[in-house]
Design a protein around this nucleic acid. Sequence first.
DNA 1: CGTGTTTGACCAGCGC
DNA 2: GCGCTGGTCAAACACG
Length: 294
Amino acid sequence: MEDKDAPDPGSEFASGSSWTLAGADSDGVNYFLDRESSILSEFGWNLNPDQADGLGRFGDMERIERTDFTGDCGGSQGTGSAPAASNPGGSVDLSTSNPSVSSSSSEDQTEKSTAGSGVKPPQIPSKVRKKGQKRIRQPRFAFMTKSEVDHLEDGYRWRKYGQKAVKNSPFPRSYYRCTNSKCTVKKRVERSSEDPTIVITTYEGQHCHHTVGFPRGGFSSHEAGFAGQLTPAISQFYYPGAHFQREILPSITQPQHVPVREVVQSHSLPGPTTQLATDNGLLGDIVPPGMRNT
DNA sequence: CGTGTTTGACCAGCGC
DNA sequence: GCGCTGGTCAAACACG
């Protein structure tokens, strides 16, 4: 992954913030280490704004989300000003890359009805669909969170649709899909094999709806507000274009009113830091050169 | 009964 | 071409 446009591992994600870019995999997925969430309460995440500067940080993200979130489910996530419309290669076609999860599509319905007619019918529809065309992945965004719980609440409801043992890791990887029938966002959750206390959450796609709150309870509106915006905001980090450069970058680089108190070990970082997070550097961390407008 | 989880099987992509 | 691995499906099951 080092031969690609991978960001510089270990670069500070944002000055004064607690996000640290931990690296990127070969698919161009950026990994961020969330320092704040390493502050764990006995109930799980400690999102208390009084203890973390995350409130201000994600307050910014929320603002960004409102700016970019004009697309609607079903109308494709690339509608309006949704940054997905201008993806890196211009090749991320949501309808193609995620056909099986577009429950609103007739294709999916066909697939389901076919499957329901037999005991164990072959998955021919998907097979035919994918034949001749590569599985195009949506932009993904991963971040590492120090947490005792695997599945972190982020304001959205997720349905688990699979779990797999991962090679070179004693911990299984869980696959989740947004329960919103029109939303194609997926996420993978796995623990780091190097540091079991770190949960690696990878989001794929972009929510086309707002948060649903925390139906299971346990979070205040404050916290829900934070976590609820986390996913879409983070997803959009990965998208190219002016939205990131104009809107997100400035806001996330603003100094926070509460200094970071905790230093997180970066042993999970795949490589040495070779570049500081200057404006360009930070941009280069997240947006490959080919994705930049200028 | 609705919703979510578990789990074995299947499939595609990729490296050798 | 073959085997490995990741990703997904879907029936069965659990739970409130």
